[in-house]
């Protein structure tokens, strides 16, 4: 493996993010080529956490844009401070040549902030699939040229290219135009050993035997047809809760009272209790 890639992998491990060879290679290339990285995968596999880890590794600030339906240019890119503009227009001290469409009245939103920040930050565009198709079109210019056009001001170019991470849970298909501008990485649930390593990293004081039991149980739930399969965060929460209660080994009583850390819908809890909690650890 390339030295740069190996270094990045160990840097990520130092900030408690375990990345496999494939992911770390894609990250290395995203940094070196200045291309956005599109991460897809089920919820709870560490897509958002990766952006946070990267900002720690590179010592850059993290700018986050949480996407949602109806997200538009005024919430993602920029807006004008309208009350201030109105006051300025009515203020007799304002000279005729002074425009109310200037930097003074500009409200910067996450995308514009990321372009102007120095040093260039890590920009996380989270759950981009939740935004509308129209917002994707807005992103195209941003992701290919790292510039945005504000009609009243002109084109704003990035001083340095931000490291852009886009995440998607695939609630809808993203356009080909957006995909083509990004490097792509599919993030799945970690393997057994990898998940044990992650838990050990977060919970070094918990008995390894208990962590292994937790991981086995969580993996069993993921392979079953539960409505909300537990992600990594749930694994960590559950193991933490069990350790807090002084559990050395999984048993029905402790599992029953800590189930809320693991399953997030009543249907899933019913599904498991009907089959018996012991199915989590019995072969």
């Amino acid at each position: 493996m390339n030295d740069g890639i190996r270094q990045l992998q160990s840097d990520l491990a130092a900030v408690r993010y375990v990345a496999d060879d494939s992911l770390v290679t894609a990250l290395h290339l995203a940094v070196r080529l200045g291309r956005p990285l599109l991460l897809e995968g089920p919820a709870g596999v560490g897509k958002t956490a990766l952006a946070k880890a990267l900002s720690d590794v590179h010592g850059r600030s993290l700018v986050r844009l949480q996407c949602y339906e109806g997200l538009d240019v005024t919430h993602a890119l920029y807006d004008w401070n309208y009350p201030k503009q109105l006051l300025a227009v009515q203020d007799p001290r304002t000279s005729a040549s002074q425009s109310v469409y200037s930097e003074e009245f500009l409200l910067q939103r996450p995308l514009l902030l990321a372009l102007r920040a120095e040093p260039s930050p890590v920009l996380l565009i989270d759950e981009v699939d939740r935004a509308d198709e129209a917002f994707e079109a807005l992103l195209l210019e941003f992701l290919s040229e790292f510039q945005v056009t504000i009609p009243e001001l002109g084109t704003v170019r990035a001083a340095g290219r931000p490291l852009v991470i886009l995440t998607s849970n695939r609630t809808r298909d993203l356009s080909d135009a957006l995909r083509r501008r990004c490097l792509y990485q599919w993030l799945d649930y970690p393997g057994y050993e990898q998940e044990v390593t992650i838990l050990q990293m977060y919970l070094p004081d918990v008995a390894p035997r208990l962590l292994r039991q937790v991981v086995r149980a969580v993996r069993r739930l993921r392979s079953a047809s539960v409505l909300k399969p537990p992600g990594l965060a749930e694994s960590i929460d559950w193991a933490n809760a069990l350790a807090e209660l002084g559990t050395q080994s999984l048993d029905e009583e402790t599992a029953a009272v800590t189930l809320g850390c693991l399953l997030k819908t009543q249907e899933d809890v019913l599904w498991l209790t009907e089959r018996g909690l012991a199915t989590l650890w019995n072969v």
């Binding site: 060879d21 290339l29 990285l37 995909r179 792509y184």
Partner: peptide, 10 residues
């Protein structure tokens, strides 16, 4: 891994 990150889109 590198070629996959570039060419794979789904």
């Amino acid at each position: 891994c590198a070629l996959r990150a570039v060419y794979a889109k789904s």
